[in-house]
């Protein structure tokens, strides 16, 4: 109080101005990076998508919607989108359920829960390249671990990597193994945010465990769930890392996802303009789905 009387409004204003300046200085690096490495390339890609742009020749002519017209008639592009969606439709519910299940399992802090949390999270910190290389061996028909296990159980052998009808599931298993741990941690944070008192009240009312899960845990996890589902969807539709090393888009193109298609067109075929157009279409699709999902998960429940 005493301090304010002496300094008055002007001093306060100066202080705020200084604070604001410091704030801008703090966010400057992040904003500069975003502008330079995210927004500038994005806008550039929009421009390039209207050009007949060859990767190694910067001189290019505008072709209007030529790239987009060709793209919509390109069977390979539609197939690649289909593969991405196939991956997404299986992985989103399966991976989310696994992550939530793991989170529920390691939620209570016992002596071993720390160990299990670490173990389940471990695949997340392993590099995609390493994981994919190891899975390549695990999936091998003759020397792979998975087929050895199947044989032990008396089940037929599966060609995870050379059967066009199966290879995508091979990529899915790797993808889920790799990411489930990350979303487990997110769910764990969400679960710990739910006040204990609500469960206690339910217990007093004599609610069963499944009832508590469906009527307390799930509704109150809605925001966490929304985050997990939206991020998983984006990751799934853009899946590419494991494809590069595990399958190279094969066999017979059966694991060529949209992102893989774009990289191939841009850098192998050197058709940067065409690839940029494909990237724009993929971007629009991911954006539209994310917006719809955000709407669907909008919630009024506060706690």
């Amino acid at each position: 109080m005493r301090r304010n009387r002496g300094a008055g409004g002007a001093g306060r204003y100066a202080f705020r101005l200084q604070e604001e300046r410091a704030a801008y200085a703090f966010i400057f690096p992040a904003v500069a990076c975003l502008l330079l490495f995210t927004f500038y390339p994005m806008i550039d890609a929009v421009v390039v998508s209207f050009k007949d742009f060859n990767l190694i020749n910067p001189q290019a002519d505008f072709v209007g919607f030529g790239n987009y017209k060709e793209l919509f008639a390109d069977r390979a592009f539609w197939d690649s989108l289909l593969h991405s969606f196939h991956f997404a439709i299986v992985v989103i519910p399966a991976q989310t359920a696994i992550a939530l299940g793991l989170a529920l399992l390691v939620r209570r802090s016992t002596r071993l829960s720390g160990l299990f949390r670490t173990v389940y999270f471990l695949p997340v910190v392993i590099a995609v390249g390493v994981a994919s290389t190891v899975f390549r061996l695990l999936y091998n028909q003759d020397v792979g671990l998975f087929n050895a296990l199947l044989k032990l159980l008396g089940l037929p052998q599966v060609s995870f990597l050379s059967d066009p009808g199966v290879a995508m599931y091979g990529v899915m298993i790797l993808g889920m193994w790799k990411s489930a741990g990350f979303f487990m941690i997110i769910f764990l944070a969400g679960l710990n945010n739910i006040p204990k008192t609500i469960y206690e009240a339910a217990e007093v009312d004599g609610a069963s465990r499944p009832r508590m899960f469906f009527h307390i845990t799930l509704p109150l996890l809605r925001r966490t769930l929304a985050f997990v589902v939206v991020i998983t969807t984006m990751d799934a539709i853009k899946i590419s890392g494991p494809v590069f090393i595990l399958t190279n888009g094969g066999p017979a193109g059966s694991t060529t996802t949209a992102t893989y298609f774009i990289v191939q067109e841009a850098f192998d075929q050197m058709r940067m303009g065409y690839a940029s157009a494909a990237a724009m279409v993929l971007f629009a699709i991911v954006l539209a789905i994310s917006v719809l999902q955000m709407r669907a998960f909008r919630t009024d429940v506060e706690y």
Binding site: A22, P29, C33
Partner: peptide
């Protein structure tokens, strides 16, 4: 000293923030 701190933060922040982003990006 505040200015120095900011400069350091700027430098490290820029590096950390751009790590990977600069990889292979053609300079305009």
């Amino acid at each position: 000293s505040m200015g120095t701190l900011l400069a350091v933060l700027l430098a490290t922040g820029t590096l950390a923030g751009c790590g990977g982003g600069g990889n292979g990006a053609a300079s305009p």
